[in-house]
Design a protein around this nucleic acid. Sequence first.
DNA 1: ACTCAGGTATCCT
DNA 2: AGGATACCTGAG
Length: 264
Amino acid sequence: MIITINDDFDLNKIISSGQCFRPSKINDDTYRFIVGKHVLLIKAAGINSYDVSCNEEEWNNVWKSYFDLDTNYSDIRAKIEDDYMSKCADYGKGIRILKQDKWEMLVSFIISQRKSIPAIRSCIEKLCFKFGDVIGEGIYAFPSPLQLSKATFDDLKEAGLGYRIPYIFDACEKVLSNNIILDEIDSLNDEHLFDKLKDIKGVGDKVANCVMLFAYHRVGRAPVDTWISRVINEEYNGINPFLAYNHTAGILQQYVFFFCISRQ
DNA sequence: ACTCAGGTATCCT
DNA sequence: AGGATACCTGAG
């Protein structure tokens, strides 16, 4: 099926911007995304048009919101009045903030601490392969809380999780016991959601903000990692520029982050 | 062999 | 409250 997207949309930048770990480029022009048990193959098919492997119903019900297609990113870029931020936004034009699965983001960003992006990807794929459902030929879903909770300590050690293993078990336990209901806490305001996520072991400020931005779509949150911290110090005299952007801080953060990792 | 990676918990003051 | 330190493991 051919679909049309009239706003910023760059598949390569989206999967390279550090917000997701499983989506991949599977050949010269086709990209693969996975949401739950849905697998999407998508490739450019002309100006603003794309060839997608799903039908219209699935596109409307699953992928439109996943790609955040109701938000106008070119408008957001146009309103930036800060030179450094504008430079990053021009460079990152086409990035969108994906609306990803809450559990997957929680686990993924707990794993992400003190790991390189290739190492994070490798860990996550191992977990999917070992504990996730088969959803296609050689394609595995992200494991559910119950599926992950069945893993042994040694299983997770083999997957390369290291000292994060107890963090993952704590997340499983809190979710399975309904101590934290990931869908329900979506109704909380930013500060309360932030605190709730940080109740989970291994979730600090940065991970909580990433989960909020990439799963709960709290686009006002701008996670501060080593790259962003460096930018704050080197470009903004130690004063966090994202705090001034109430409702688009997270989007700008992605432009800046992508700019940084692309030029390392 | 060696450093560093999209941080966090813990232990200080 | 804020600073220092240890931490599993893989990629470069």
